[in-house]
Design a protein around this nucleic acid. Structure first.
Length: 922
RNA sequence: GCCCGGAUGGUGGAAUGGUAGACACGAAGGACUUAAAAUCCUUUGACCAUUGCGGUUGUGCGGGUUCAAGUCCCGCUCCGGGUACCA
């Protein structure tokens, strides 16, 4: 009987859909398991063969867990707000909602063909008002909260208002943009607008003047993780730094919790490390430097407090507030000129041109430890956004300070014994201190480590500064000057923002005539008619960024149709958090930080019961493209096969991988591919045209995009699923290479044939033999272990071995074949379902139970020992199972081959590794 | 620069410190067939031997630990990823 995958897959996918086979509900009688894929942004290009890799892996795991008796939540949805749809809208006038809808339908069609067990009744879309209502709701909650550092938790802003009215800022320890200090009387005397401005300093969602990444071509600001090497991740447009009033989320308040939370997560070490670096905790000291003849004090942050005797100048960031306070009137002009010249440079230019620039402020600071007067400079190598925007420069022990000192001819004082600073700075934190004594502190003779500790202590005791922890993690900029995003539930009264009442949600995205900024430079929402509240207050014109909708989507899946709450307590307490999350590494510093932050906030306000959203995380590797090339002889229309090309002067040309099979070009299709090749001539090898290949990014321009639909059409979904897993470890990046898919397809045909004898169904009730049972139980053991450990590629091999063995045994026993179908079902659900029903079952195969292997079937009668002499294996020998060590030694020594390898010597030592090896040392 | 990974046949990749190269692709040879497809069988790291056993060598490079190292330790080389004037 032929394996007719087309018929099988069509019938069963329809059956699953019509009978809602994969719909799940909360079921207290079963343990829950939540498996989640990172939901896709539905781009116009559709899915390529790389997208389903992670989905297949998680689908296998979901089906396996279900067979193991878990109630598995496995949902899917769409991250449907985003730049590409809007860019497309600008170019074509097509409404992004229309394009998005079209793309979603195409995605769904493609996903359905692969046989995933998603519960589509829980589908969500971030652009759906029923969904973004809760994104807006969370924003309101963040606006109405502040972060208390004492209890390390978000609290209602109303508490803060009360506190201010009672005792002002006295004893307050809250996350804020700027340290403020006022009394209750002062607070109570302020008008509402002033009070609102003060509160903005504490809100978790706040409007703040911050340095932003402005992208002129996209006409919007971008978050740090949306910028890479000075250009936008999407589109690759230049990005510049600019101060703007923007909505921000006080993610930095959660820095320590985000760092600590990593310890309990089952993520790869490298991903945790990436997050740790992004959070960038650094312990150091904050110190004050008085400015000569002024009451200004510069506060600086350093991790090298020990080098304070080597400070020879100070540097301020050009954007620092200190600049105005410090600049001497004589130098004002040159400083202003310098700041102007810096402003005009984009981030990208600064990255490329790292030449040393700076200007003297005309003022001096006093080193608090030796009283020396040191010049204050201004340079853009100091960043306004990190620490205090001011540093003490120690050129001997910091390479950047060193470069600056050399350039401007400033003194360099070495502080470590025997270090040579004539050509470069000595940055290592090691060695013995010298030249470090004054004002009651003597570090000479100490190691660097001891010196850091001693200085910290001294500075603290003398009130010269304090120990401080700094984080690199910045607040997330939350405004986008775009149309296609969630509108803010915010209106303005007297220039101050207020949030809408919850009952007004969702605040629907209005229609606009064009998706471009207005003539006056306002965001596209400035074009919307009647974009204000019922009583006439204008609404916010910016929309939320892409990560807004994706930060809490996993929570909404638990209770997707609830119009009263984000999630009901009951659903949340049942599903809790994601047990297994599968997605790409590209979200390590974006989505995965924001999501964790968002979840912790919801945890603080008692909406969710778990403090971390994703317990275990698997990063699937990227599928790269494998491009094919043909070689055209220069100035001709003749193409020469790969291994003959060196004899000619050729130009490699990308050729569509879809007309190449196992690197052999389909010449007829090639001639039809493009008109200019219709008359092409070929120089063949062995009557074939062999193409060259290279691994590149999968993209249209390289003609190496492989569409899963084509694979499904040719081989079937089950083959695609098996093959994607067989390609290599899930977590590894690898090129898509269709060479080899035939082998997997052959295996499925072979498996199918096990159940038939010619055209006849041949499964019988015969008792299985011992070897058949052994073969089966070996497979159960291997596959169970592999699935638990995401080692699917070796599982596929195990299946192949087992099927080969069973074919050899001519196995037809139901007691072997039925369990085999169950084992197969997570990997190849369609064929498994078909066979399951042919075996006479009325239920679907996903309602079966996974089996445990039985050790008794795996026992061997005899064991093959490898016998080695001095570690080198020489021969092997079969010994009855269960033979004692002493007996094994005796048998091995008396074996005829042993005498030859021992060469008359007596063994010094014999090591017997049970069931494996006997090593004889002579 | 710093922080993570990785390096195994012609290819993708297997190997709880215990016979390296499972499984698959590709290649070569053979069977069936008028022929092809499909299927099946044999060989397939390299080198030497080959009438048959067999031997030598071999997991990026150089050392080390061990009875035994692809695997552990030290020192490199190369490749991939992340990140960066973060004081």
């Amino acid at each position: 009987m032929e394996y007719n995958f087309k018929d099988i897959e069509k019938r069963w996918s329809q059956y699953w859909k019509e009978n809602h086979i994969y719909k799940v509900t909360e079921d207290e009688s079963k343990p829950k398991y939540y498996v989640l894929d990172m939901f896709p942004y539905p781009s116009g290009a559709g899915l390529h063969v790389g997208h389903p890799l992670g989905y297949i892996a998680s689908d296998i795991y979901s089906r396996y867990k279900r067979l193991k008796g878990f109630n598995v939540l496995h949902p899917m949805g769409y991250d449907s707000y985003g730049l590409p749809a809007e860019q497309y809208a600008i170019q074509t006038g097509q409404h992004p909602a229309v394009t998005t809808e079209k793309n979603i339908n195409r995605y769904r069609e493609q996903l359905d063909k692969i046989g995933f067990c998603y519960d589509w009744s829980r589908e969500i879309r971030t652009c759906d008002p029923e969904y973004y209502k809760w994104t807006q709701w969370a924003f309101i909650k963040m606006f109405e909260s502040y972060y208390c550092n004492d209890v390390q938790k978000a609290l209602p802003i109303a508490d803060l208002v009360k506190r201010f009215a009672d005792r002002g800022t006295d004893g307050l320890n809250a996350a804020c943009s700027e340290e403020l200090s006022f009394t209750a009387d002062e607070w109570n005397a302020k008008i509402e607008k002033e009070q609102q401005e003060i509160l903005m300093n504490y809100r978790i969602a706040y409007l703040g003047n911050t340095m932003v990444n402005w992208c002129p071509q996209l006409g919007t600001v971008l978050a740090n993780d949306e910028v890479s090497e000075g250009v936008s991740v999407r589109g690759g447009y230049p990005v510049e730094q600019k101060i703007m009033r923007q909505w921000c989320l006080r993610v930095s308040a959660y820095a320590q919790r985000l760092l600590d939370g990593l310890d309990e997560l089952d993520w790869t070490e490298s991903l945790k490390e990436t997050q740790r670096n992004w959070i960038g905790r650094s312990e150091g000291t904050e110190m004050q430097f008085k400015v000569v003849d002024s009451d200004v004090e510069l506060t600086i942050f350093t991790t090298r407090a020990d080098t304070v005797f080597g400070v020879t100048f100070m540097v301020l960031a050009p954007e620092s507030d200190y600049v105005d306070k410090v600049v001497n009137s004589d130098c004002k002009e040159s400083v202003l000129n310098y700041i102007e010249s810096i402003k005009n440079r984009t981030e990208r230019e600064r990255l490329i041109d790292r030449s040393v620039t700076g200007v003297f402020s005309g003022s001096y600071a006093i080193n608090p430890l030796n009283g020396k007067h040191i010049p204050i400079w201004i340079s853009d190598y100091v960043l306004a956004g990190y620490g205090t925007g001011a540093i003490m420069a120690v050129p001997a022990h910091d390479s950047r300070d060193y470069a600056f000192a050399k350039h401007f001819d400033l003194p360099i004082i070495p502080l470590i014994k025997d270090c040579d600073v004539s050509n470069e700075s000595f940055d290592a934190k090691e060695g013995i201190m010298i030249n470090s004594c004054g004002n009651g502190l003597d570090l000479n003779g100490l190691t660097v480590k001891e010196a850091i500790a001693a200085t910290k202590k001294f500075v603290q005791e003398k009130g010269l500064g304090r120990v401080k922890v700094n984080y690199r993690l910045r607040d997330a900029i939350f405004s986008r000057q775009r149309y296609w995003g969630e509108p803010f539930p915010v209106y303005y009264k007297d220039g101050m923002p207020y949030v809408l009442d919850e009952s007004m949600l969702p605040l629907q995205l209005p229609e606009v005539d064009k998706f471009l900024p207005t003539e006056s430079g306002e965001p596209p929402l400035g074009r919307a008619k009647n974009w204000n509240t019922a009583d006439g207050y204008p609404l916010e014109l910016c929309t939320m960024p892409g990560f807004a909708g994706s930060s809490a989507y996993y929570i909404r899946y638990m209770d997707p149709h609830n119009d009263k709450e984000l999630v009901s307590r009951k659903a949340d307490e049942y599903w809790r958090n994601v047990d297994l999350y599968v997605g790409g590494t590209e979200h390590a510093t974006g989505h995965l930080i924001y999501s964790r932050f968002w979840n912790k906030f919801l945890y603080d306000i008692d909406v969710v019961c778990e403090s971390e959203p994703f317990k275990k995380l698997i990063n699937q590797g990227m599928i790269q493209g494998r491009s094919n090339f043909v070689y055209r002889i220069k100035d001709t229309n003749t193409f020469v096969s790969l291994h003959l090309k060196d004899k000619y002067d050729v130009t490699p040309i990308h050729v569509d991988v879809n007309i190449v099979d196992n690197d052999i070009l389909d010449i007829e299709k090639f001639k039809q591919w493009r008109p200019e090749f219709a008359t092409a001539e070929f120089i063949l090898e062995d009557d074939k045209y062999v193409c060259g290949w290279a691994v590149e990014k999968m993209s249209k321009s390289m003609y190496n995009v492989v569409n899963p639909d084509d694979i499904v059409e040719k081989y079937g979904a089950d083959t695609l699923r098996f093959y994607e897993m067989f390609l290599g470890p899930v977590e590894q990046s690898k090129p898509w290479d269709t060479n080899g898919i035939d082998g997997v397809h052959r295996f499925l045909r072979k498996l199918w044939n096990l159940f038939f004898d010619g055209d006849q169904w041949a499964v019988c009730d015969k008792e299985p033999t011992r070897e058949e049972l052994k073969s089966l139980h070996k497979l159960i053991k291997k596959v169970s272990w592999d699935i638990e450990n995401f080692s699917y590629n070796t599982s596929v091999s195990a299946f192949m071995i087992c099927v080969n063995e069973l074919t050899g045994f001519k196995t037809k026993s139901r007691q072997i074949l039925e369990p085999l179908v169950i084992l197969l079902s997570p990997f190849a659900p369609h064929i498994a379902e078909e066979l399951w029903h042919r075996l006479g079952n009325n239920t679907t195969v996903c309602d079966a139970s996974w089996m445990d292997y039985k050790e008794e079937y795996l026992k061997e009668d005899s064991v093959t020992y490898a016998v080695s002499f001095n570690g080198k294996v020489r021969f092997s020998i079969e010994i009855q199972a269960g033979t004692s060590r002493e007996e094994v030694e005796k048998i091995v020594l008396s074996h005829e081959s042993s005498a030859k390898w021992m060469d008359g010597k007596t063994p010094k030592k014999i090591i017997v590794v049970p069931n494996k090896i006997v090593n004889i040392v002579i």
